[in-house]
Structures are given as C-alpha cells and as structure tokens.
Amino acid sequence: MEKFKNITAVAAPLPEVNVDTDKIIPKQYLKTIERTGLGKGLFSELRYNDDGTENKDFVLNKSQYRNAKILVAGDNFGCGSSREHAPWALLDYGIKVVISTSFADIFYNNCFKNGMLPIVLDEKEVSLLMEETERGSNATLSVDLESQEITTSDGNKINFKIDKFLKHCLLNGLDDIALTLEKNSEIGSYEDKIKSQRPWL
C-alpha cells in the first residue's frame, strides 16, 4: 500500500447527505476482477449525460475542480454497499482525502486499506471548509497526517482526530495482512483452544 503523509490540493464540495457507494460507483463497474481503472466510473450517473458527454453541472466537471484531490461532503458519506470499488474509484480518479461529519463504517475502513484518508470533523468545521471549497481553484487545502492538521489557503488551521493504529499504517504504508501473520502462533493457540471449548465449530 502507498504511504500517505500529506497533500496540498484543490478541494471540491459535494453538499449532499447520505452519498451512497452505489452513487460513487454504480454496479455496472463492479463486474471487473481488477482493482484499477475504476476512475472512469466514479459518480458516472452524475458525471455523464445520457449520450456519454460530460454533465457540465456536476462539480468534478467544472474547470476549477478538475484537479481536485480532496472532497468535502455531507453527513454519512459512503453508506450502503460494502464495495471497496468505491475507494478504488475515488483513488483511481485522484481523490485521496474525503472530509465529512461522518462516514459509514465499512467505507471508512476500506479507505485505510488503500492509502486514502477519510477525515471526520464537526458540523461547523465542515461547513467552513465547504465555503472554502466554493472558491474553486483558489481554495486549496493542505492536509498533514503527522500533525493531524488541515490548513486552508488563508492559513486557518483545523485539527482532526484519527485512530493511532490507522494513522501508523497510513504513514508507513503497511500491509496489515503481513502484520497479522506475525501473530500466527497466537492465532494457532486460539484455534487449539476453541477446538476443545466449542468442538461443533
């Protein structure tokens, strides 16, 4: 997994609650057996018109947001289906950070497995950043994971919280399967224990 340390990029506003993973990546893109190449399907039902041309009204199609690498979204982002294709699509498109007042648990988890950073802030902070992002390409945000700090283009700073373990994995790009396999003998002893305690399993 790629490391995540910091990013300075344009942030795009998505002022909508309950953005579900079906919306992030519709089902027709789930038939792939690869992790890559999903960026073309990101928000496809919003991004494209029926004839396949771009919908000019969709935020990521506006010139000032074309290079956005950060999304600022409404509450409960990433709800619904567990499809990891949602963070894969965001990442493939170039989005590395999503900021919201809350995330669905599975989506939140999936981000960390792919070197992406979802940031939870309170309502006031999210609406402040939402206003910042309305300013388009002039409104870049800097996100630094080590110091857990977001800096706006005017120099305002917002701190964010993050789980210690998840931060450690992101900063170092750790593969958690390899980490878990280091505990192989503990897993083995657990299995021996349940064989006698719950033999029906």
Partner: peptide, 22 residues
C-alpha cells in the same frame, strides 16, 4: 458484518480481522 475486499483477503489469509470494538 459486511467487509471490503481487502478484509476478505485478510480473512482468507489469516482467519482473523483487525477491529476496534463498536
């Protein structure tokens, strides 16, 4: 619980998951 594909791989390989209690 539902999980993502990375966690599917994690369980296939280790029969465990890293979690924080809900």
């Amino acid at each position: 619980m539902g999980i993502g594909t990375s966690e599917v791989e994690h369980i296939l390989a280790t029969q465990t998951l890293i979690q924080r209690k809900a």
